[in-house]
Design a protein around this nucleic acid. Structure first.
Lengths: 341, 341
DNA sequence: CTGTTAGCGCTTTCAC
DNA sequence: GTGAAAGCGCTAACAG
């Protein structure tokens, strides 16, 4: 194998000299300026290839206001929902020639603050952030202090302002309730009730609102816990009670899948004895047995929208704040089929 | 709300002046050098806080050889397996004060090449990469040409050299086969046979090897397809054939879950009529019904090991190449319980 | 269209 | 311990 010939870094000036032009000319060529005559451009490009030139954006960044770099700060990377979202962000970044730092706050506001600081020191142009549980005004103050443009996704801090992208949880849940009612269910419970962040509140509120709309009792709520689990004791109490539920809407697909497993272990036939509806429409929802009816929140689309919105904000810092609420549609599958009885 | 007072960036010189010291002194303070007298340090720190100083690593990077930045190039971010791995990488990065760019090649060598080039231009210190299907020597040549230290994870390019971290697929599968044999299964099929990349080859090879070891026929292999699906026609052909399988080992958990759903739809009782074993031990494996027996490949640990190995490589570029193969243990759950008959 | 010049904010000798 | 000065690789302003 041939040894790499010259670890000596070659810079724009070297390229310029090799091509017999000035450094400024070479600079314009790298950036594809139309001001350069084609033959000159060719000569420079050739020299670049010859010398194995690598554009040093770090140096360019020192002179420019933009680095073509953003940060993505998530509350829990390991959650499949967020990986879909990340993929969406990456899609639009790849198209825009921007590159993305990833950071996992693991629901810790302290770690989150540290990571934001770090990203700022690396001069990211802006961040897309799903605030960790417990984030408050301090987060926004930090961002403001660091003059870091941001877009919140999925959740927003209390009283928070600024750009925001999420799914329409409430109307999704309303659709789910309507579907259950239309297929003969009346005793609907909500599994995964929490109020730890805005998205959780929105879902639970949506449930209460929808049940009220249909004049159904909304008192069957099983508390959710960190890590996408729920209170099993409470669930069993309801299941074995005098007026047990005949269906459930879950905080998300992961809890719904766990619930299905739980119910099947207890002998329920899903879709018949009991209807289960999840939320998010992760790939695994369709692959479950029985396939899971779910409210599609389109994480990938949310990621794309957020990345696009952040770019718009960077191009026009003074544009009015935008709050994008993407529709959440019900995807009907076997887990909520019309009961046979 | 108070407007942010001074969007004017404050730099080290400003801090130095405010603290009544020279810029060099201030520089040493930011980096926590022990050469500075505590009282001086305090004064500078105070000035920094007062002025809202933000360390500009971009500028520092121009002078130093390291940027404290790495790239993580994955073949498919949306796969939950990779999000676990990413979380592992993030864990050690957070501890080492390095920040991580993420890039999704979506199994496209071209996109992958583009992203690596981009990362290089941003001066990452190195990359962790799971090569896209179809990657060949060109990838390693590119990395070498860009003098970009790298660690391959999970897969490696053909004839590839260099640092590498993966799980011991073969021995994991051997354990799975032994477990099946010990619980009375003889007719074992492999679902998701592919040879598109080294990890796929390793798993399939492992299956053949293990079956030979137990002197069992190894001809029942259902081909896998892109996107974690398999050839359903072929599967049904085997299932309905004259000598049908009584158990299956799958390429990964996602396929295993799909297979379970498939079998349940056809009336099989899993763990009894038929045993299913997956691979990876994703969180959803434990939550499935019945809970899925699986070969744990510890994606998170792989991520941690890769990030750690990359740091070691950066600190000692000439250290010998390391190939870390993490153990893969069998996690036994109900989907492969001893048959009752 | 091309060349010259002056920095961006930091680190790093090397004197003091 | 501290300060002065040079320079990392690039862009931008302006003169030709």
């Amino acid at each position: 194998m041939k040894k790499s010939p010259a670890p000596q870094p070659v810079n724009l000036l070297d390229v310029a000299r090799a091509a017999g032009v000035s450094r400024a000319t070479a600079s314009l060529v790298v950036r594809g300026s139309p001001l350069i005559a084609p033959p000159t451009r060719e000569r420079v490009l050739e020299a670049m290839k010859q010398l194995g030139y690598i554009y040093n954006r770090g140096a360019a960044n020192l002179r420019q206001s933009r680095t073509h770099t953003i940060g993505l700060v998530l509350s829990n990377i390991a959650n499949p929902f967020f990986s879909e979202l990340t993929a969406g962000v990456d899609d639009v970044n790849d198209a825009n020639d921007v590159v993305c730092f990833i950071a996992n706050s693991v629901e810790s506001p302290e770690r989150q603050a540290r990571q934001i600081q770090r990203l700022r020191e690396h001069n990211v142009d802006g961040v897309i952030i799903c605030p960790a549980i417990g984030s408050n005004d301090t987060l926004l103050e930090d961002l403001q202090r660091l003059s870091l443009p941001y877009v919140q996704v999925l959740r927003h801090v209390p009283y928070g302002s600024g750009d925001y992208v999420a799914a329409d949880y409430a109307s999704g849940i309303e659709k789910a309730v309507r579907h259950l009612v239309e297929t003969g269910r009346q005793k609907i419970m909500f599994v995964g009730g929490m109020s730890v962040h805005s998205a959780a509140v929105a879902r639970l509120d949506g449930f209460h609102r929808a049940m009220a709309l249909h004049q159904l009792p909304d008192d069957m709520v099983v508390a959710g816990k960190w890590g996408n689990t729920y209170d099993e004791v409470e669930l069993d109490r309801l299941l074995l009670g005098s007026n047990p539920p005949d269906s459930a809407i879950c905080y998300n697909d992961i809890m719904a899948l766990a619930l299905m497993s739980h119910l099947q272990r207890r002998g329920y036939t899903l879709g018949d004895d009991f209807a289960v509806i999840g939320m998010d429409d992760l790939p695994q929802a369709a692959a479950a047995y029985p396939p899971l009816t779910t409210i599609a929140t389109n994480p990938r689309m949310i990621g794309q929208a957020a990345a696009t919105l952040l770019q718009k904000r960077l191009e026009a810092p003074d544009r009015p704040t935008e709050r994008i609420i993407l529709p959440a549609n019900l995807v009907i599958r076997a887990s909520s089929e019309t009961r046979t009885s």
